[in-house]
């Protein structure tokens, strides 16, 4: 990078200076992601986890894998040069959470209130 400013801002997906470390970072990310994927399939198809806990386990594994992707593939860090990227990501995740959790909450309420087999009155 030939501009002083690039020291202070960094965009997602842009690797840092040492290229040997970058290949290592991608490879570490690939290995971790494959392990987490295999763990997800094992949890889904065996009785390793207590039945009702399987969904929670799968969600935790999915979030772990998304974290691996963000750090090792998109090279998002926690340093000051990543503040803008992380803030944008945090806002995006807030909207995603509101849309998904809000929809599930509202429709679950709707279903609970509408699906009487014997309507009252």
């Amino acid at each position: 990078m030939n501009n002083d400013r690039s020291h202070f801002d960094r965009s997602p997906g842009v690797e840092q200076n040492e290229s040997a470390a970058n290949i290592l970072s991608y490879t570490a990310g690939l290995v971790l992601a494959i392990l987490l994927t295999i763990a997800s399939f094992i949890v889904a198809q065996t009785n390793l986890l207590w039945g009702p806990g399987v969904a929670v386990g799968l969600i935790v594994l999915a979030f772990a894998q998304i974290g691996v992707h963000l750090v090792f593939f998109l090279h998002l860090g926690s340093g000051p040069d990543h503040t803008n990227n992380i803030l944008a990501l945090a806002f995006g995740l807030l909207i995603v959470f509101l849309v998904i959790a809000g929809s599930c909450w509202i429709i679950a309420n709707l279903n609970a209130n509408m699906m009487f087999t014997h309507p009252a009155g």
């Binding site: 202070f8 965009s11 997602p12 909207i95």
Partner: peptide, 28 residues
């Protein structure tokens, strides 16, 4: 820290915002 950031940073940041909006679309 004077001066505008390099084009590469601006382009990638703008595209990052697009990707996040795409993910918001997927969330629906």
């Amino acid at each position: 820290m004077g001066g505008p950031p390099p084009t590469r940073i601006v382009v990638a940041y703008g595209f990052w915002i697009f990707i996040l909006s795409d993910i918001v679309m997927f969330s629906a």
